[in-house]
Simulated scan of single mutants.
Amino acid sequence: MTPSHRHTPHPCGSPDHHGEHGDGGQAEILDLDAEVLAEHIASITAWLPLKAVPRRIVDLGCGTGAGTFALLERFPGAHVTAVDASAGHLRLLDERASARGLRDRVRTVRADLDISRWPEVGTPDLVWASASMHHLADPVRALARVHELLAPGGLFAVVELDGFPRFLPPGAPEGRPGLEERAHRATEGLHAAHVPHRGADWARMLAAAGFTVEAERTITVSIDGSRSQAVGRYARRGLQGLRGAAAPALPPEDLAALDELLDDRSPRGILHRDDLAVRTERTVWAARRT
């Protein structure tokens, strides 16, 4: 679920992780996102209004493979072409496919989806794009290109974030309640400038590209930290990136509180808290080429 062009710092769920640079840091947060939200990804693949079981699937902006492997599990007879701009992410995906005995069902393709000529990816029955379309400089052109390559009657599933995940309760942390929301507000201008298509009207854009939008669904995610130890690590990486992006606009008291949350030695550190949760929303549009 990484952007499949130039990497814009990406939150959780693929998300636009504030201040995360480099394949290694982004790969870690994508993996945590996949682990924590695996149940929700599976629910989306099960919900898709398919007319027939897809055999040829393209995953645009595949990242380290959260969507790819969910689709392979959901459709055991399918082959997935996984497309991303990051060689490091594709290498990890290849290694994991081999480790899971799925190498013959996955092909990885490195590509920048903002270039005018895309690489050959066949004629898929299903195209999946999770948290990747909003990163493109020209998503209108990309949507038209997807419409061209889809098989007649094929489905395009666009999954986008309605907002960045929140991890702390509103009254936290002690002494600086509401810190997380203030930090997110401090980054709004940054994201408006660097990711202008986040929150776009995808239903309208899909229709303009020639698709028939057959279904739309918003999924509310609320995962208590007690359900998985990965929630703490996920929160730590998310807040670490948030701190880097929000730092210029936050007062010293907020920065100090964030630093304490990110200090693993502090008893108030994020990894020692028992009040964490993952709260976010994702919207899915299922659009058909008629």
Rank of each mutant, 00 (worst) to 15 (best):
S116T: 14
R117G: 02
R117C: 07
P119Y: 15
P119K: 13
E120S: 14
V121M: 14
V121D: 04
G122T: 07
P124A: 08
P124W: 09
P124Q: 11
P124K: 08
D125E: 15
L126Y: 12
V127L: 11
V127S: 05
V127W: 12
W128M: 02
W128R: 00
W128Q: 01
A129L: 09
S130T: 04
S132Q: 09
M133L: 15
H134R: 12
H135P: 02
H135G: 12
L136E: 09
L136Q: 10
L136F: 09
A137S: 15
D138N: 15
D138C: 11
D138F: 07
P139F: 09
P139G: 04
V140G: 15
A142N: 03
A142Y: 03
L143H: 07
L143A: 05
A144E: 12
R145I: 13
V146G: 05
V146H: 10
H147R: 13
H147E: 09
H147G: 06
H147A: 13
E148D: 12
E148I: 04
L150D: 02
L150A: 03
L150I: 05
A151W: 04
A151K: 13
P152V: 01
G153Y: 08
G153F: 06
G153M: 01
L155Y: 06
F156K: 02
F156H: 06
A157H: 07
A157N: 06
A157W: 09
V158S: 00
V159S: 00
V159I: 14
V159Q: 01
E160Y: 00
E160R: 01
L161T: 05
L161W: 01
D162S: 08
D162V: 01
L168R: 10
P170N: 04
P170R: 07
G171P: 00
G171M: 10
A172N: 07
P173L: 09
P173R: 05
P173W: 09
E174I: 05
G175W: 11
R176I: 06
P177S: 03
G178S: 03
G178C: 04
L179N: 02
L179H: 03
L179R: 02
L179V: 00
E180N: 01
E181N: 10
R182D: 06
A183D: 13
A183L: 12
H184S: 03
H184N: 07
H184I: 08
R185P: 07
R185F: 05
R185D: 15
